[in-house]
Simulated scan of single mutants.
Amino acid sequence: MSESTASEPASAEERLVGADRVIAVLTELADHPLGVTLDELAGILRSSKPTVHRALATLRRAGLAEMTGRGVYILGDEYLRLAFRNLDGRPETARIQPLLEQLAAQFGETAHYAVLSGKDIVYRAKMDPPQGAVRLTSVIGGRNPAYRTGVGKALLSGQLLDLDQVIDWFGEFPLEQKTVNTLVTPEALLAELEATRRRGFGIDNQENEIGVNCVAIPIHLDGSTTPSGAVSVSAVTFRCPLEQLVGAVPDIRATIAQTLGPNALGVG
């Protein structure tokens, strides 16, 4: 075997490690919209500064990262262009966005569309109300643990039917108690999932963030019996108490059926 042939496996391995590092740097940049320095990135990723710098150089050549005049790195405009072009081109976005706009205008609160991703929910679309001094901090692409969100409970209520399934899904208990209202035991979660299944919508009673509550309704965009995601209406409690949101659920359902068709609610 020649020397050049013997070195090929090591070279391939190095390229793989290098690609992993580039992805790690790109992912970390996404968590720092105001920017992050080379020293900070190296510390967070526990890598040497030359290694991180090489990854940043690769990303900058592709337009996926930029360096400001202060020596701070941010995501590049090309990354944002690609991400939003992909998001806008998705069929679900074209169908969901008019619904969220209608809900936000109708109720004067923030509307979301989110899906399950592992043990989290991910916001795929969002619409803030046209007016209102207080806006929620959620962002498209943002994640929250499913167990403490109305969307998560709406989507899991049809999957986790007994205590063993709840324990298997969430793993180690107790879960993190983000607020005083967060449900952290398997028994409490099972009881809430059963209640969610009976009423047909999920509730977040200030379980993820104090001062914010929501109701969430599972929807079917692809004709499957399994929901593709859930639509939620979220509000700050001083402006719209949970009881008011719950009372609006029939109207939210009616708007969903009118905009997407009754099949979106799993009817028909």
Rank of each mutant, 00 (worst) to 15 (best):
G171T: 12
H53Y: 11
A125V: 00
T255H: 05
A19Q: 13
P241Y: 07
C214K: 02
Y79W: 15
Q177R: 13
D39V: 07
G142R: 05
T137C: 10
E66Y: 04
M127Y: 02
R124V: 11
E40W: 06
R15W: 09
P98V: 12
G69D: 10
T137W: 10
R54K: 11
A216R: 11
Q177I: 00
I210P: 09
I210T: 14
T37E: 07
L163Q: 06
T110V: 05
G43V: 06
A57Y: 03
S117V: 11
L41C: 11
G158I: 01
K119A: 14
L16V: 14
K153H: 07
T51L: 08
D168S: 15
I219P: 05
T255Q: 07
A10V: 09
L161Q: 13
D164F: 02
M127G: 00
L156C: 05
G171Y: 10
P262M: 04
G261C: 06
D20Y: 10
R197V: 05
S234Y: 02
A154S: 09
A114G: 08
P98H: 09
R15C: 01
P145G: 13
E8F: 11
Y147M: 11
G35Q: 05
S2I: 02
A264D: 00
R197D: 05
T149C: 04
S11M: 14
A55V: 01
A191N: 09
R124S: 06
G89I: 02
I44L: 15
L100Y: 04
Q206T: 12
E3D: 10
V72W: 03
